[in-house]
Structure formats: structure tokens, C-alpha cells
Amino acid sequence: MIEFKNVEKIYSNNVRALQNINLTINQGEFVAIIGLSGAGKSTLIRCINRMHDITSGQLFVNGMEVSSLKGGEIRKFRKRIGMIFQSFNLVTRMSVLNNVLVSFVPELPFWRKLTGVFPKEYKIRALSALEQVGILDKAFVRVDQLSGGQQQRVALARTLAQNPEIILADEPIASLDPVTGRQVLNDFKRINQEMELSVIMNIHHVEIALEYANRIIGVREGQVVFDGKVEAVTQEVLDYIYNSHSKEGLATSEGETVHV
């Protein structure tokens, strides 16, 4: 479970990226975070795994207060949280398999890091992760020979090899064409359902968010202005999330919506 309690994030230039965030995300949920560019979507996601430190409030992941972690505790904590980026973050001149194996490097003794020799168990985990995303046949192909969608699947396999409890995805299909983007999100959805992994996705494509997620969080000017089931998202809700000039609150429905 992820729990934000009165979380604020203020950058060094005094930009208030997050304001009074109060959220609870349960294990196994598929959550899409939507809103205008600069609304605070990426910041919200990146606070969960300590890529960004919060300025005030409390943030808990499975009962652990994230801001209190230090040094090795942070590295150990991040192993439980997979992060998928828009840019894939792959080494394109290496094989698919080796890109997945990279996720195990921090766990290796020094001599294995020098030689690049991975234990058999790690190779099995890496190959299993590639099979989960349907590209096992590409294991020994160089990444630069793959399509964009296949590269994003390699990034997802690298994350799955870590056996995470949570997957954070920051605009995972922004650089993909619509057909390929849906194929990648089909993988996310299947993994979410089969493995009961929490998936928290920051995304610009509203129609895709509504199709794949179970829950929508709308962010505007650093504040959560909507939090509810997909079925509760109306045009009025979307207009409120995306119209920064609107100052009228949303009508609530059975606690599904939140307004400021």
C-alpha cells in the first residue's frame, strides 16, 4: 500500500510542484495519473521511489516511511519498485538478455561485476521475464535492432526480473505509435492482473488511461482534483482537470471525486 499524507514538494526555485497530497493506493490497483504538462504528475510518481524527496508531509510504502530511509536502505527499498521511463534507458549496443541482466549488477560481488559473469539463477530469471512480455526469441538480439515497442518490453522485462511489488511508469507509451502503445499497455494490464502488481502510470492519453486503468487520479497545479473509478470520469470531470482557469469545484458522487 502507498499512502501520501499531506505531502508537499517545493523545488529549489520555489515552484510548488505538489500541494497537500492525500492518497491511498492499494496493492494490485492499476492507477492512471492524468493532467496537463507541468501539473505535477511525474513529480508525484517520482516521490514514491525517492527519485524526488518530499518537502513536507509523510509518504509510506507498505508501512515504511520513505523520507526516513538513508544510504543502503534507499537502494534496498528501490529494488521493490520498478520504474519504466519514456526513453527506455537501455544500452542499445548490448543484447536484450544483457540489458535485463543489468538489473542484477548491484547484487553481484566485485569479481562478477568486473568479468560480467552472471549466476545461472539470474539468467533464468532474466529469460523468464522476457518470456512474460513475449520477446524470449529476441534474447540474443542487439537492442538497436528492435522496434520501439520491443525496446519498451525489454525495459519492462528488466523491471519484472527484479520481482517488484510496484511498477511506476512515467509516460511509457509517449514515444510509441498508437498500435504499439496499446500492445505495451496490454502487457502492463496482463501483468497487473496475473501478478497482482500495483501499476501507477503517468499518461497524457486520456482515452488510453480510461481504457486500461481501474482508477483515475487527476492532478491540476500540483493538487489532486479528482480521484475515482474510471466509470466516474465524465466530460465535466475532464474539463475541470484540464481547464486551469476553472475555479468551480466538481460535484461529488459517492466520494468518487475530490475538488479543491
Rank of each mutant, 00 (worst) to 15 (best):
I2E: 00
F4A: 00
K9V: 02
Y11M: 12
S12H: 09
N14S: 15
A17R: 01
L18N: 04
A32N: 06
I34C: 08
S37G: 11
G38Y: 15
K41Q: 07
L44H: 04
R46A: 08
I48L: 00
N49C: 06
H52I: 09
I54F: 03
S56D: 08
L59W: 00
F60S: 05
F60P: 01
V61D: 02
V61S: 03
G63V: 15
V66Q: 00
S67Q: 10
K70H: 15
G71Q: 05
G71S: 08
R75D: 11
Q86S: 07
Q86Y: 06
S87Q: 02
R93F: 14
V96A: 02
N98M: 03
N99Y: 04
L101M: 06
V102A: 12
F104C: 08
W111M: 11
L114K: 06
T115P: 13
V117Y: 15
F118C: 09
K120I: 12
E121T: 14
L127C: 11
S128Q: 11
S128L: 13
Q132C: 10
I135C: 01
A139W: 11
F140P: 03
F140A: 14
V143C: 08
D144A: 05
Q145L: 10
L146N: 06
G148F: 02
Q152N: 01
Q152G: 06
V154T: 01
L156M: 06
L156A: 01
R158A: 09
T159A: 01
T159I: 04
A161C: 03
N163V: 06
I166P: 04
I166V: 08
A169G: 06
I173F: 04
A174C: 10
S175N: 12
P178Y: 04
R182S: 06
Q183I: 02
N192T: 05
E194Q: 03
E194R: 08
E196T: 11
E196H: 08
L197S: 02
S198A: 13
V199R: 05
M201H: 01
V206D: 12
V206E: 12
I208Q: 08
Y212S: 07
Y212F: 11
V225M: 03
F226G: 01
G228R: 07
K229E: 15
K229D: 12
V233A: 10
V237H: 11
V237P: 12
K247R: 12
E248F: 08
E248H: 13
L250C: 14
T252L: 14
S253M: 15
G255Y: 14
E256T: 07
V258A: 04
